[in-house]
Structures are given as C-alpha cells and as structure tokens.
C-alpha cells in the first residue's frame, strides 16, 4: 500500500536516534492520528523488535492511541492544582453536554474527550487543550463552542 511506504519511510528516518521506536510512534500519531496493526508491524520490522514489544510500547504511553480520536479533541486537566479550582465539576458538565466520558470518542469521530495530568498552567486552572490550543481558566463555553 502506498500509505504503508510513506509510514515506513517516516519510521526508517528515526533509525539511529535516541529512543527511536518511541519517536517513530510519536511521528505516526502526528501524521496519522492513531496507530494501526499495520503500523505496529512496520515499526517492529524496521527496529527488529517483536510485534508484542511494539504493542507493549504503544499501550504504555498515554499519547499513543490505537483508535482514531475526534476531529475536535478535548483534553481537560484532572490533576490536583486543577482539582483545587473545580476541574471535576467542569469535566462533569462537559461530559454531560457531549454525552461522552473521559477517554471516549463520538461515533461520527467529530469530538473526543480525554483527561490529562498537568499542562503546566497550575496557577491559572482549570486548564485544558482543544486540539493544539491551550486554554487557561477554562470554562464550559471555551470547551464546547
């Protein structure tokens, strides 16, 4: 498949770098949005690892997903500094409005909701991310608009 050769090229470009398999998987996430069985096979092949090794890496890191995320990917910080300023309530409201729990994606792939542990804006919470945009003092409206 044409797509496969592009992925293979992307993965091969990481050979020799520090921590290459992790970096290769991160690049697949960035270009493809999620990691498929075929991608696992390619990474295993290029780095001479077993598929089980690569699946083990994929399941370990929370940035890696084996299912597609929503076109709008909402991440709300669930850590202590944001708890102290109401992230639990915010998460409940957003979750109810979307009909999605943390870690879930809508069937039409329009939106997904995920928890995250700390974005480093701990004096200005609750903090959240919508796709690449980072939001301080996040409100329900910021996340749902």
């Amino acid at each position: 498949m044409e797509n496969d050769s592009a992925i293979r090229e992307l993965v091969s470009a990481c050979v020799g770098q520090t921590g290459a398999p992790v970096t290769a998987l991160r690049k697949i996430m960035a270009t493809h949005g999620h990691i498929t069985d075929e991608h696992v096979g390619i990474v295993a092949d290029v780095f001479n690892l077993s598929r089980a090794d690569v699946r083990g890496i994929v399941s370990f890191y929370s940035d890696f997903s084996t299912t597609p995320r929503g076109r709008k990917h909402i991440r709300i910080c669930q850590a202590e500094a944001c708890q102290a300023v109401g992230c639990r309530g915010l998460t409940r409201e957003v979750s109810a409005a979307l009909g999605l729990g943390l870690g879930e994606t809508s069937e039409d792939l329009a939106v997904s909701l995920e928890g995250v542990y700390c974005l480093g804006l701990c004096a200005s919470g609750p903090s959240a991310m919508v796709n690449e945009r980072i939001i301080a003092h996040a409100t329900r409206e910021d996340l749902l608009q």
């Binding site: 520090t18 890191y61 929370s62 542990y117």
Partner: peptide, 18 residues
C-alpha cells in the same frame, strides 16, 4: 509520550532507550 512515571530517573532512561 505521556507517562508520569518517566519522571523517575530509571524509567526515563528506559524510555530514552526506546
């Protein structure tokens, strides 16, 4: 790639080794 435990120094080294 999103793992709190990788702040532990030996876990971090494992991660750096891929």
């Amino acid at each position: 790639a999103g793992a709190y435990i990788c702040g532990e120094e030996t876990s971090l080294l494992e991660s750096l080794e891929g």
